[in-house]
């Protein structure tokens, strides 16, 4: 318990093996009693991961088939809500594994000292080298502006072209949404010294700023803007799930900032070995295969069968941008203030 002064809540006792049951009685034990002795692995994640259409159900089924355990999801709204919940719970959390933080949150998450080193070496195919003692990546994507090919014939090729155009874009608020924060990091990584000018020039292109990704994307689909900040993989959803090939992501010359989604193990976990087995499973071929068409992101390790058909149509940025978690955390406050000032005019 990391020397925590807070005692283990009473409910934990129920999870301990029922030592009082004699071997002879065990002979008569019903199936449900047998179930009660199976260790429970609690995985804290964001809601669209655990949703019936997300990767959660398949991963739960796949892992439970081998682990002799019960995997239960605990749900928070999004990546930032996952971290906020962890901080609220502190060392009294009964979560074992956290799935769904991204690299703009991991520095902040590491500083809580709630995470334990995973000690695993899992190969990944990320476009930039990535290794972190506390977190393993499970999927990733490039941020991009998505547009409708039938309405926009020649999309801008850079932030500067976008700023110079009359195109209308809708973006997410970096104060409430991780993609919104990602865009701030993207501009900062592409223009380390000129980011304020870029924002100033982009101001008249921005129709509005929404609190979350789904609202921005909804406005775009409704035709309120020519482009929306999303991912290079967004067109794959329309292509594969809706048989609609009109959406595309615009490649930018400056390169594209990445969102890397990671999972980690809590120091307070009662089943650290089981938790590590789960992290390994999350990086396995079986789990990685489900991610592209459920989370609509790139799997951290390309499955042996390759990516689903349709992903080959997506743009492949030549240059990938990504701050280290500590740079991202150090930049966050000043980047938000710079953005506020530029857009408040």
């Amino acid at each position: 318990m990391l020397g925590s002064p807070i005692s283990i809540p009473a409910r934990r006792k129920m999870e301990r093996p029922m030592k009082t049951i004699h071997l002879a009685l065990a002979f008569f034990a019903t199936a449900s009693m047998a179930c009660a002795e199976v260790p429970v692995l609690k995985v804290l994640t964001y809601d669209s991961f655990a949703a019936e259409w997300g990767p959660g159900p398949a991963i739960e089924k796949g892992f439970e088939a081998t682990c002799a355990c019960d995997l239960q999801y605990v749900i928070a709204g999004d990546g930032a809500a996952v971290l906020a919940r962890l901080k609220l719970e502190g060392t009294t959390s009964d979560t074992d594994v956290v799935v769904g933080l991204d690299t703009s949150l991991t520095e902040n998450a590491s500083k809580t000292n709630l995470f334990a080193p995973h000690g695993l070496t899992l190969a990944n195919d990320l476009p930039v080298p990535f290794s972190d003692p506390d977190f393993i990546p499970f999927d990733w994507g490039w941020f991009a502006f998505v547009y409708d090919k039938t309405k926009l014939a020649s999309p801008p090729k850079s932030f500067k072209e976008l700023a110079a155009s009359n195109l209308k874009i809708v973006i997410e608020d970096p104060r409430s949404s991780t993609p919104g924060l990602g865009l701030l990091m993207w501009v900062k990584a592409a223009y380390p010294t000129d980011s304020a000018t870029i924002w100033h020039d982009l101001a008249d292109n921005i129709v509005t700023v929404t609190p979350s990704w789904d609202q921005a994307y909804g406005l775009f689909l409704k035709g309120e803007a020519d482009m929306v900040l999303s991912y290079t993989t967004s067109p794959a959803y329309h292509l594969i799930a809706e048989k609609d090939d009109t959406k595309a992501a615009a490649p930018f010359e400056e390169g594209h900032y990445m969102q890397v989604e990671v999972a980690g193990l809590l120091a307070s976990s009662h089943h650290p070995d089981l938790a590590r087995t789960f992290l390994t499973y999350l990086g396995s071929d079986a789990a990685q295969t489900t991610l592209p068409t459920t989370n609509w992101m790139y799997p951290a390790k390309t499955p042996t069968a390759g990516l689903p058909k349709g992903f080959e149509t997506l743009i492949k940025p030549m240059k990938s941008l990504l701050f280290s978690p500590s740079e991202a955390e150090a930049n966050r406050q000043s980047a938000v203030e710079e953005w506020q000032t530029a857009l408040a005019r």
């Binding site: 104060r175 409430s176 929404t210 857009l343 408040a344």
Partner: peptide, 29 residues
């Protein structure tokens, strides 16, 4: 309200106390 203000307000000018609370609890903790 903050969804209405932010969505139709057109940018960070249209920030309400409720959004500031959201930011304080979600990102800045």
């Amino acid at each position: 309200s903050f969804v209405v203000s932010l969505t139709f307000g057109g940018g960070p000018k249209a920030t309400t106390l409720e959004l500031a609370i959201y930011q304080a609890l979600r990102f800045d903790f």
